[in-house]
């Protein structure tokens, strides 16, 4: 090799050195290899009224921050706006995120759009409310049957055999409604008289009037179980107004400020509180794991707590009942 060529080579090498030094010193050269992940959370509602969804959102945002990924939160205005959620899903799929976390407003109607997401190689997870197909790679939420059973077991423990029990559910063909009812019924067993399930269509007023009707129609009614927040609020108002408030075994799902007072006053004997914060947090974490091709369980139970007047101010339950938003 000629000396001149060696000199050229040396200059080149020195230049390369300086270049690498420059890159590693002045900018995070190696972060170039790190990819940014985008996750979209499609909630049931973006309404700022529902505490449940605001907390779930909070959990998701915290998780995304902890993991260092981008999160976008969207959803229909109202929980029963299924068509809007479907079109939002279509838009989200267009934007090609790495993963979508869906809280399905409908058990069946969200299936085609979910399949589309999977077709486009986007990871799909469902949170709180699931879909009937197996397109979701991970389901994160309360195991509703178990939660229902927990509540049913409490009722069963407080009643005598043969007592009459009313169930107030929200939507006839929603998976959580069906599963919760199944859970309650299986825990109650055959030793009680269970009235036909009443549906409120997630409407507080309907819950109120239906409960009023039940109380009037069945004076022998010993227990009422309301299976979601809106139904519970409506039922609570009816029970509170009645002269049997505090006497009747009234149990609910979820809680809000009104119901907490009911719990303090002894009108609500117990409420089963879900953990929306955990749902949001874990959903994003699972999405992250899926994106990074880590094994993820097909379903995660975020758990629930049975809250009574006695344990409602335990420090852990304070956080569940009074989430600081």
């Amino acid at each position: 090799m000629k000396p001149s060529r060696i000199i050229t080579l040396n200059i080149l090498i020195v230049f390369l050195f300086l270049l690498i030094y420059y890159f590693s010193a002045n900018m995070s050269f190696f972060s170039f290899f790190k990819r940014e992940y985008n996750v979209v959370l499609v909630m049931k509602t973006t309404e700022r009224i529902s505490e449940f969804w605001m907390i779930l959102e909070k959990g998701a945002i915290q998780s995304a921050e902890d993991l260092g990924i981008n999160i976008e939160i969207t959803g229909p205005d109202l929980e029963d706006n299924i068509q809007q959620q479907i079109s939002i899903m279509e838009e989200v799929i267009e934007s090609r995120p790495d993963a979508i976390i869906l809280a399905a407003t409908d058990y069946k109607r969200l299936v085609p759009v979910s399949a589309l997401a999977r077709e486009k190689k986007i990871h799909l997870l469902t949170v709180d409310s699931f879909i009937s197909s197996d397109d979701a790679e991970c389901e994160i939420g309360t195991v509703n049957e178990a939660a229902g059973a927990k509540l049913g077991a409490f009722v069963s423990g407080e009643l005598n055999g043969g007592d009459t029990v009313a169930l107030i559910s929200f939507v006839a063909d929603s998976s959580p409604a069906i599963e919760r009812e199944q859970g309650v019924r299986s825990a109650l067993g055959n030793s009680f008289r269970i009235l036909d399930t009443v549906y409120t269509n997630n409407n507080i007023d309907l819950g109120y009037t239906e409960t009023k009707r039940l109380l009037a129609e069945y004076p022998e009614l010993k227990a009422i179980a309301a299976l979601n927040e809106n139904s519970a609020v409506g039922a609570f108002r009816a029970v509170k107004e009645s002269d049997r408030a505090g006497e009747i075994l009234f149990v609910t799902f979820d809680s809000d400020l009104e119901m907490i007072q009911g719990l303090e006053d002894g009108i609500i004997k117990a409420t089963l509180v879900q953990k929306p914060y955990n749902m949001g947090y874990l959903a994003v974490q699972m999405a992250y794991d899926l994106i990074r091709k880590k094994p993820v369980p097909p379903s995660i139970d975020t758990g629930s707590e049975l809250i009574t007047r006695d344990n409602m101010y335990d420090i852990k339950n304070q956080k569940l009942l009074f989430p600081s938003i």
């Binding site: 909070k58 959990g59 915290q62 902890d66 953990k275 914060y277 955990n278 947090y281 874990l282 420090i315 852990k316 956080k319 569940l320 989430p323 600081s324």
Partner: peptide, 16 residues
Amino acid sequence: GEIVYHPRQDLIYNDL
């Protein structure tokens, strides 16, 4: 040993 303040209080109480 009780938590007065924790930025991830929710995570702590939720056992995460």
